[in-house]
């Protein structure tokens, strides 16, 4: 099994790069044949990646959440998976290259630095924690995808305002669709983040009986959750739309990244596992 893990670990960046290449080629050339093939290539890559994480869990006897580079691999899969679901739901296939690029970057870093992790702290072997992490990562992937769509929205917006009718104008879906894609992905991200927080709150007292509700990680995550919750509510009420909701989504993403950086590096928190 170890042999298979090594081989797939080597193959995954190549697969993601191929997916990125096929999506980019289709973005530039818009060939019908490629358009149909690319979804299949992405699906096979996600299948291989899922298989890789399963056999990794079986071999090392813990969920693949015990090091930064295992987490990176899950982020890579989550982003790819989020995009795949969005593509299936909306049948909009022109934006894949911009999203899959992130999957490729996370996976190549993971593949380079990932190690065999037979010995890990007992706390990381907990299945509830596994569920919490997977939900949190899928949630963060959702908001990442939303931010990418937000950036694409701004790019097209700028092109339209400045009379640039090149590749971006030709290939990207219209502004309303990009806004919708950004919103759908943020809603999926928000729901999964909520699950992750609920599971975390259930698991936390058993793992850390002396934890504090004023822990920076808890406050930071709650702030990010509240920012997105407020935005989604206002969008549903019709108070935020168009460029404003896009800018708000990007603001939320920046807040989420800052929260992660501060709580994982600068602040002292129970959440420092690695």
């Amino acid at each position: 099994m170890l042999e298979s893990i090594n081989v797939i670990n080597f193959l995954l960046p190549i697969f993601y790069f191929t997916v990125f290449g096929v999506y980019s080629y289709d973005f530039y050339k818009e060939k019908k044949a490629v358009s149909n093939i690319k979804r299949l290539v992405l699906f096979l890559t996600l299948l291989l990646h899922t298989f890789y994480l399963i056999i990794r869990t079986m071999e090392y006897n813990h969920p693949p959440i015990t090091s930064k580079f295992e987490i990176f691999s899950i982020i890579s899969l989550s982003i790819g998976f989020s995009y795949f679901v969005l593509e299936l739901l909306t049948d909009i296939r022109g934006t894949g290259a911009f999203i899959i690029l992130f999957s490729f970057i996370f996976q190549i870093i993971s593949s380079f630095f990932i190690e065999h992790t037979y010995i890990v702290p007992e706390v990381l072997r907990n299945r509830l924690l596994g569920l919490h992490v997977i939900n949190a990562l899928l949630g963060y992937s959702g908001i990442t995808v939303s931010a990418v769509y937000g950036l694409l929205y701004l790019l097209l917006y700028k092109n339209l305002k400045s009379n640039k009718f090149g590749l971006i104008f030709d290939r990207l879906p219209n502004l309303e669709i990009l806004e919708k894609l950004s919103f759908y992905s943020v809603v999926i991200g928000f729901i999964l983040l909520t699950f992750a927080m609920v599971i975390g709150i259930i698991w936390l007292p058993s793992a850390y009986p002396n934890f504090s509700y004023t822990d920076p990680k808890l406050i930071g995550t709650f702030v990010v959750w509240a920012i997105y919750g407020f935005g989604i509510l206002n969008k549903l009420l019709g108070k935020l739309y168009g460029k404003k909701i896009i800018l708000y989504s990007i603001f939320g993403f920046v807040a989420a990244i800052l929260s992660l950086i501060i709580t994982n590096t600068l602040a002292k928190t129970f959440h420092s596992f690695y």
Partner: peptide
């Protein structure tokens, strides 16, 4: 064509 690049429906 430009209108279609802004509005979906």
């Amino acid at each position: 064509q430009v209108v279609e690049k802004i509005f979906a429906n």
